[in-house]
Nucleic acid binder design. Sequence first.
DNA 1: TAGATTGTTAATCGATTAACAATC
DNA 2: TAGATTGTTAATCGATTAACAATC
Lengths: 206, 206
Amino acid sequence: MTASIPDIVISRLPIYLRALERLAQDGHEVTSSLELGKHLGISSAQIRKDLSHFGGFGKQGTGYKIKYLTEQLRQVLKVEQEWEIALVGAGDLGSAVARYRGFAHRGFRVAYVFDSAASKAGKRLGNLEIYPMEKLHEIISERQIKVAMIAVPAESAQQVADALIAAGVRAILNYAPINLNVPAHVRVQYIDPVIHLQRMTYYISE
Amino acid sequence: MTASIPDIVISRLPIYLRALERLAQDGHEVTSSLELGKHLGISSAQIRKDLSHFGGFGKQGTGYKIKYLTEQLRQVLKVEQEWEIALVGAGDLGSAVARYRGFAHRGFRVAYVFDSAASKAGKRLGNLEIYPMEKLHEIISERQIKVAMIAVPAESAQQVADALIAAGVRAILNYAPINLNVPAHVRVQYIDPVIHLQRMTYYISE
DNA sequence: TAGATTGTTAATCGATTAACAATC
DNA sequence: TAGATTGTTAATCGATTAACAATC
């Protein structure tokens, strides 16, 4: 615990968690680093090494109890309880994100939605009220929201990020196709489908 | 060109391209590895090293001409011309993806949409017709579609992937929260917002 | 017990960075 | 020319893998 754990290790834990949940759904109760590795295209040694940073979760000869390992990984990642998320942007993309049912049971819930359009303020998105940007600081700081998603055009993404951070947000998932400048205590992740697509076309030959 | 270029290098090129396009939009004509690196939080040495895999795109003393470097990177990534994309799944998420305007001018266009629901077949999504799954093989193989996106529930994602690959698809962007098993000649990328969120909460302390 | 699989060490492999000659 | 920045080499750093003793 003294030496900090490489971020690349942290980045694989959610993948393991997702695979474990699927194995559990399929009725499995126990798995091994070899089986998990085959599912994910990762070497068994890497999985064991990654997990060993946090403790010995398995048993020699038998492997890992799925339910137990799942609980442990949830604790490590701090997703045993639900984080309330603030979503900024209620356009096509923001609406789809707000309606996405995949957050439930994985540690997150979209709890507040903001949009700069005066025409949208007060309207509803599913069972959520859309708040104007003027309310952002008050709500986020009072409710101590730490996690946010940005689904606004690239041009306004940076200023939205600044406002979120000023209100206390510590983790931002940015759907706008632009790099954000943030202080060191804030984490940012990006979702840009084009980046992924461009990364694959390189390999497509005639 | 004989030694294959590391995938991690390829994965950064779209990021560089996106930053260059933004600089161009902001009226810049020239940049340097140092400036680009500051924007992206990457060392200038890494940027120069990455680019040098493909040729000398800059000039000592002055840096890189943005327009020229942009063209070169587009060629390397094979996105000078537009790829037609097949989208499978026309639910909330698929609809938002189909309507997303960020593909234009970045090398991609959603050209065909498929959905398994009989109720949706023949309906329109924007200006695109929704085809039934039965048409998938015929259309994708005849039009030689090589790139596809999957926006169906996790339970059916693998069989959709199998069908796409059988029809000739070589690159899949998967929005379903599940790992796909694909043959070696097919590339897969994943978009799962929860994975990104879980990767950040680890770092949030009280 | 015999077989299987973990956790961990050491070896290998690969990626990043520092430094600088080349040169615009 | 003097200053700046590239492209590239060598050094450093870190991550992955192989191997195996420990042990269930």
